[in-house]
Structures are given as C-alpha cells and as structure tokens.
Computed example of a mutant assay.
Amino acid sequence: MCGEVQDMAAEEPALRRYYRNTILQYDSLDCALVHHLSNKLANDSVGSGEWYKLLEGVLREPCGGKLVELMRADLQAIMTRDPACEGAAHALLNYKGYLGLQASRVAHELWLRKRRSLALAIQSRVSEIFGMDIHPACRIGRGVMIDHATGVVFGETAVIGDDCTILHGVTLGGTGKDRGDRHPKLGCGILIGAGALILGNIRIGDGCKIAAGSVVLMSLPAHTTAAGVPAKIVGRAMEDKPGCEVDQSLSNVSFFDPRALRARAAGGSGGGGAHAAAVAAAAAAKGVRRDALRVSQASSARGAAEEGAEGGGQAKGAEPVAAAAAADARQEQQQQQQQQRPRPQQRPLRSFM
C-alpha cells in the first residue's frame, strides 16, 4: 500500500503531506486506520489524540487481532467487488462505508465489554460524520461491503453474516415498539439493493437477493430473490454468493413465472390441438424452456375454447401464439448471453509495505 500511496503523492504534490500524515509514516494497516479514524471522529470535546488512545487501546486488547483481520477482510471485499475502487489506499482514505464500519466494529467490542457510554458516543459520531447509523450491539461478519453508506441503519439486535454487500439507504429495523430480539438476521453472501427496508425479527437465508426499494416483512429461504412493496419471492438467485458477485441487474435470477404457476394449478383444460401444435413447433425450434411451453399450451387451450364459442377455427389463433413463443425464446437467449458475460478479475490485497 505504501508504494501505491507514493505513486499517488507523485501524481498530486499538493497531497503529499496528507498522504505522509495518514499512511506513509505508519508501519501497519491498523495504525494508519486508527490514526485516520481518530482525525475523523475528533471534535471540540474529544480531540484526535484522545480518540487515538481509545481506539489503539481496543486494538491492544485480546480482541485486537480479530479486529485487524476483519479490517483486512472488509478492505479486500471492496477491492474485489467495487469497480470504482482505485486501490487499497483509495478505500482506506475515502470510502466512508469502510471507515464507518470499522469504527462500528470498535464500538461493538466496547459494547461487549460493558463500556456502553463510549460505544454509543462512537455510534453518534459515526452517524454525524459518515451518515450511517449502526447500533454498537449489532453483530457484523467478515468481508462485508457497505457501498456509498449514506442512510444505512442497522438496529440493535440485527445480525449480518459474512460476505454480504449492502447498498446505501438500507434499513435493518424493527416493526414498532417491540423490545428484545426484534431486528432482522441476515445469512452469508447476501446482496441488498439501495433503499431496501428489512423489518422485524425475520431470517434472510444465505445467498439471497433483495431488489432495490423493496420492503421485506417475511423470512426468505436461502438463495431466493425478493422484490416489491411488500416484497414477494420472485425467483431463485443462481449465484452461490450474490453478495460477492454484486450483480444488481437480476440477470442471474431464475424467475418464477406466475402464469406457469396458474397453469399448473388449473391442471390443464384440454382441447386446443392446433394451438398446442403451433406452440410446440415454435418452442422446439427456439429452445423455449419447459415452463414457458406449459404456459403457452395452457393459454392456447383457453384461446381455442374462446374461439370455439365464437364459431372461429382453431388455426386462426396459432400464428399469434407461435409469435409469442418466439418472443419468449429471444428473451431466453438474451438472458443466457448476459449470464455468460465475463466476471471482473479479482485483485489481491497487497501487503501494507
């Protein structure tokens, strides 16, 4: 990282002193981070020197090694997942989501040691400076990225698993005035889009995706995708860990087709031979999925029944059904092409020196 910062200083001489005071004069990541956080947290009441002693004291305790490991894992997560990240030094100096998360990790350790006044003071300063409100009792796993971070709120009894990615405006909150265990529990590898609200003591399973702006009020099974207000399960996430892939386009989602579900529930209505034959031919030519074929067959049966009642022939509706099947096939082909796009290359976290 020091070599990276030296290159940055050479490119911008006006920031040489800033880079020297924040990173270059320190021999480890944790020392540089503690110094940088101390300057951020400082105010007229508690100066940077006092904050440095407090934060450094926590790192010297038995929990300090674990905290440093979490700091490195979170930094690696940003470098791997965020294409806008210029490097480790860029994230350390400028990513408020990373800085606020590390300050909250220190506050959590203080909370566990019954130093709750200091933990709550850190929470308050993090909220004022970085615009994110994380209760010090909230438990957060390793390799977590909070992107942009503005407006993030994590409640007291919330739990966040490893390898999650959470965007700005996300709330892990309660549903009212309930006391005790009242906040969401997130598994590992979860991706939560911007502005999503997850409320109540519910469980979000491993590998879930939650679309931006959704309001989740119920537990979600593992590897499902939820969207809407209130959120409903709309499909299955195909990635093992969506939080690591960070594909918010939902291209890697196997959607549940409500028409197919209704068709299965109907159990088939019979008839419509010409329609079904036309749909089957188009589906075979274009490689339409089995569910889409069932939907088309069910709709063709209903169309044939309506045409019979009106005195029309069955062959009359075959062409539009075949065209619809061809359109479904084109959409399927586009989704497959999106899924085959190359993934961004992971960049390893280099040593501090």
Rank of each mutant, 00 (worst) to 15 (best):
V159I: 06
G207D: 08
M353D: 15
K209N: 14
G267I: 10
Y18C: 12
A237T: 14
A89N: 08
Q346W: 01
A103W: 06
A301Q: 13
E4D: 06
A325I: 06
R142C: 13
A292Q: 14
Q297L: 09
R105C: 12
Q333M: 03
S48T: 12
L349M: 01
V152M: 14
K286Q: 14
G271K: 04
I190D: 00
K286I: 14
G317H: 13
G169K: 09
A305C: 14
L101Q: 11
E50Y: 05
I210S: 13
R116D: 02
T171I: 02
S351M: 12
L55G: 09
I146K: 02
V68M: 07
G169E: 08
A32T: 13
L112V: 11
R16K: 02
V288A: 06
A231C: 10
A265C: 10
L191R: 04
Y98F: 08
D27I: 15
R113Q: 10
Q337Y: 10
A73V: 10
R330C: 08
V5M: 00
H168Q: 15
C164D: 02
D7L: 12
Q339C: 13
D240R: 10
K66L: 13
D133I: 00
L220N: 03
G151K: 14
A196V: 03
G97A: 15
A10D: 12
T80V: 06
S296T: 11
R142Q: 10
E306H: 07
K40A: 05
I129A: 09
V288R: 07
E239F: 06
A277R: 15
E56G: 12
R236L: 00
D247I: 05
D133Q: 00
A211Y: 07
H183M: 00
A73D: 15
D328H: 03
I166S: 09
G272W: 06
K66V: 15
K232S: 14
I166T: 06
S214F: 01
Y18V: 08
A137Q: 05
Q336I: 13
A315G: 10
G97P: 05
A277C: 12
A276M: 09
A88G: 04
R139Y: 00
A14V: 08
S300K: 03
A194C: 02
A285C: 14
A322I: 07
L349T: 01
G100M: 04
V153F: 03
K185A: 00
Q331Y: 08
D247S: 01
R139G: 03
E239W: 04
R125Y: 00
G207L: 04
E245I: 05
A222R: 05
Q345D: 08
A285H: 11
R105F: 13
I140Q: 01
V159S: 01
E12H: 01
A277S: 07
G213H: 11
A32D: 09
A9W: 02
S249F: 04
L217N: 05
L33A: 13
T80F: 00
A281S: 10
G243H: 05
T175A: 02
G313K: 13
V246M: 11
A9S: 08
L55R: 05
Q123W: 11
R236Q: 00
A237E: 09
A149R: 04
